[in-house]
Design a protein around this nucleic acid. Sequence first.
DNA 1: CCATAGTTTCAGTATCTACTGAAACTATAG
DNA 2: CTATAGTTTCAGTAGATACTGAAACTATGG
Lengths: 199, 199
Amino acid sequence: MIRSISSKRQVEPAASSGVDIERQLHEAQDTFIRRWGEMGATWGINRTMAEIHALLYITAQPLCTDDVMARLHISRGNASMSLRALCDWGIIHRMHRRGQRREYFESLSDVWEIFSIIASERKRREMDPVLETIKQCQRMLGEGQIGQSAAQRSDVLATRRRLEGMEEFMVVTNKIFQQFVGGAKAGLNKVVRLLLKAF
Amino acid sequence: MIRSISSKRQVEPAASSGVDIERQLHEAQDTFIRRWGEMGATWGINRTMAEIHALLYITAQPLCTDDVMARLHISRGNASMSLRALCDWGIIHRMHRRGQRREYFESLSDVWEIFSIIASERKRREMDPVLETIKQCQRMLGEGQIGQSAAQRSDVLATRRRLEGMEEFMVVTNKIFQQFVGGAKAGLNKVVRLLLKAF
DNA sequence: CCATAGTTTCAGTATCTACTGAAACTATAG
DNA sequence: CTATAGTTTCAGTAGATACTGAAACTATGG
């Protein structure tokens, strides 16, 4: 019996059925989706949102809310809200099919664009507040440091220098970042072109 | 009464006491530490570790475990383990003071170096596995796609194209990244110099 | 070998975030 | 207006992570 199965495989190497192919495609997609979700989770994007996006990206087809629910085993509320959030970010789009009331969603196809959107959002929400805090700290240390002991003076100076170091780093990083992001929207960007030329 | 207070301030503008200065420094440092901890949390570095590092960075002084515990109100176990983890990462160092058995810790002072260490670690833990998964998916779709319907063939091809798009993006991003990181260790790096020249 | 400083482990707990399932609400076609 | 598709809200809960406090363990100086 075992032999007959394996011999069958040998006889019909190219005859994998349509069902097999579909299952294989499905499995490959799920592998990608799962990994993408895990990565998203450690990047401050919640797992489900990352998975929905991965699904739309990898299938390269418009799917409706029920498709997403079924494929990822999530509730209607979750699917609906997550899809809306992804639309708000602009990394997926709503799509109508004429003659159908039902709405479909599809992912942007350009990875550079997707990442530039995500990255800009993260910069705004995470880098900018830190820069603001650094400035605030600098203001707090800018006033009234006359008359203290030498030791205190040097402590204040040391902290100020550290704040400056951090500020400089973030400002420069932001500049690089904006080049990367701004350029990405116009296809292969300036930074990339420069780098590929240079190395 | 109110007037007398304000006039006193005018008369002695430079006479803020040593205690005031210390409190002010302390507050500014805490502000930074808190914000840094929040940022770390959304970046996959846990809040306490980020705070410990922020403390050592911003005070610019070697502190011992008990200092850290007291300043951040955390338990001995937590402090000890987090300090060890930071040492393992290499963004803080142990330091001995002669004649004392007690160990002190101090932060690297170069922000570029700190970030290149953190970033490399994140790349290794998060980007690399994704690249690996993409390759795995490609292998899964590389075999046995003969004999299926035209629709199935096109689905498989579409998914393959998406995998390729993602792979290309990650490979290029990794290259940029390594330049950034590798160069950072040698002070202002190649990427930065290129960019500052170009823009 | 003892005393002490320091480190690691761990069970229990607190905290946080995301998710479900249901209900309420809104929009549209007929 | 009614039926239906679709969206939003929310209370309760599940699951994950990180933290504490204590105990066990390790290393070192004397």
